[in-house]
């Protein structure tokens, strides 16, 4: 036997109410979208903001006047003092910037100076080695000259032909 459409078992009140809630939420979302995209609403809210800002300014001016008459520091006075402190800090930071830049430059100069000193020391070492080589060569040449001078007396005056070729090799 087919079930009647209005059978109590088929009717789910919870599901129905949930569906209704979902529809309400979707409808509300769509409505808000429509409202917030509307030029009239946007223009009105923009004007409202302007009015609020003006009202706020007027209120603050009124407060400041009241405090001024009571010989109390106004918000504007405090802001001015804080602004001066901020500007002072900014000046100090600018000095710090400059000092850091100078330090960078000095570091760079120090590095360059160190590099130059290292290079100069290396050059001096090279020159010293070269000088030592030359000195050794001169010494050898002098020693050879002495031996050449002494040789004729020892081996009957024959030149040392074998030894003469050696300096070219040393050079």
């Amino acid at each position: 036997m087919p079930q009647a459409p209005h059978d109590a078992a088929a009717f789910d009140f919870g599901k129905l109410s949930n569906d209704m809630y979902q529809q309400w939420e979707q409808a509300m979302t769509a409505w808000w979208d429509q409202v917030l995209e509307s030029p009239e609403v946007l223009r009105a809210s923009g004007q409202n903001l302007s009015v609020m800002a003006r009202a706020r300014r007027k209120y603050e001016e009124g407060m400041d006047q009241g405090l001024h008459q009571l010989h109390l520091p106004t918000r504007e006075d405090l802001t001015r003092v804080a602004r001066i402190a901020t500007l002072l800090e900014e000046r100090l930071l600018q000095v710090e910037d400059t000092l850091l830049q100078v330090k960078d430059q000095l570091d760079g100069m120090e590095r360059a100076t160190l590099q130059a000193r290292v290079e100069a020391a290396e050059t001096r070492l090279e020159l010293r080695e070269r000088l030592a080589e030359l000195q050794a060569r001169i010494d050898r040449l002098e020693g050879r000259g002495a031996s050449v001078e002494a040789a004729p007396a020892e081996d009957g005056g024959k030149p040392a032909a074998r030894k003469r070729g050696a300096p070219g090799k040393e050079a």
Binding site: L36, E37, P39, L42, R43, S45, G46, Q47, L49, S50, A53, R54, R56, R57, E60
Partner: peptide
């Protein structure tokens, strides 16, 4: 998006609504 619509020139007068001497609350 929507924020651009909120502050579009036709809807929002930035000179009137925001003071250069104060914070945006």
């Amino acid at each position: 998006g929507r924020f651009a619509s909120f502050v579009a020139p036709g809807h929002f007068d930035v000179e009137q609504a925001i003071s250069p001497d104060a914070l945006v609350p």
